[in-house]
């Protein structure tokens, strides 16, 4: 067979990409539509981006989303990293399989179920729903992803580096801080970025667990769209797409960085 891209391959690839990105492309193009009517092209313009700045409701929602994403990503990164360390390093403790199952479950659990379960929990313990409940819910949602990323890095980690540090007189905690942590830092950072992104664009779970006064950006967009699509919505969505794209690039660069690091200096170049 001929190497490279055949006609069939190119067509399949084009169709696949079109399927994935055509809707987004249309959204992006229409965000630059000068016309107030969404379906009619009225020439290029950035007026909807300018008018976004005056839309206090959208700005508030964006600010809430960013704060939730930041907090949830930070907590999820700490917890997820600890879980990964326990899974990789603690050896075969009792209930290890169960624990790893529990960490991974939210990854594949339908969001509706996670959201509903969290809602029931918050109602049961009678917590006031709003900013903090969404933050907790997003921490739950994203922690497993951090664990997966950090765990992969730890599995490829050369333990003799830590032994060398201890051999040279570093107690276990200092060994972790001066050798282990710097070497897995890119994976941890990638986990944080991913958690941040997941929180930023989550609608379902946020919708279940939010309360009055804590409209995240996706919830706000959804409720606006129900009353008709405004060009401003296209603009904010385009911004979100750009942020997510940047985040994905950052996360994959970080993962690559952590993977490409020479594991042990003994590896031939």
């Amino acid at each position: 067979m001929r190497r490279g891209l055949s006609f069939v391959n190119v067509t399949a690839l084009a169709l696949g990409l079109a399927f994935l990105y055509l809707p987004i492309l249309i959204l992006v193009i229409y965000s630059f539509n000068a016309s107030r009517l969404v379906t009619i092209w009225g020439g290029w313009s950035t007026r909807w981006y300018v008018s976004l700045l005056g839309n206090q409701a959208i700005l508030d929602a964006a600010w809430i989303s960013l704060r939730i994403a930041f907090l949830a990503a930070c907590v999820a990164t700490v917890l997820g990293t600890l879980a990964a360390l326990a899974l990789v390093r603690a050896g075969r403790f009792r209930g290890r399989l169960l624990f790893s199952g529990l960490v991974y479950a939210p990854l594949v659990m339908p969001e509706v179920i996670t959201g509903l379960a969290l809602l029931l929990l918050f109602v049961a313990v009678d917590i006031e729903r709003g900013f903090w409940t969404v933050t907790i819910a997003h921490t739950t949602l994203t922690m497993g992803f951090v664990t997966v990323i950090v765990q992969a890095r730890l599995l490829g980690f050369d333990r003799s580096l830590e032994e060398a540090a201890m051999d040279l007189g570093a107690p276990p905690l200092r060994t972790f801080m001066t050798v282990t942590l710097p070497l897995i830092a890119p994976a941890i950072a990638a986990g944080w970025v991913l958690a941040f992104m997941l929180s930023l664009d989550d609608f379902v779970i946020a919708n279940f667990t939010t309360g009055p006064g804590a409209r995240t950006l996706p919830i706000h967009i959804y409720s606006e769209v129900r009353l008709g699509v405004k060009p401003e919505i296209n603009a904010i969505c385009t911004i979100i797409v750009a942020v997510v794209a940047l985040g994905i690039v950052a996360a994959s660069l970080l993962t690559k960085l952590s993977g490409a690091k020479p594991e042990s200096s003994g590896a031939p170049l």
């Binding site: 050369d158 003799s160 580096l161 032994e163 060398a164 540090a165 201890m166 051999d167 040279l168 007189g169 570093a170 107690p171 276990p172 060994t175 050798v179 710097p182 070497l183 690091k261 020479p262 594991e263 042990s264 200096s265 003994g266």
Partner: peptide, 20 residues
């Protein structure tokens, strides 16, 4: 006695140099 308190040092087969 834990490794970090032993007055012996080891040169590892893989060298285990800290890459960072």
């Amino acid at each position: 006695v834990p490794p970090h308190r032993r007055p012996v040092n080891m040169m590892f087969q893989s060298y285990a140099l800290f890459p960072h």
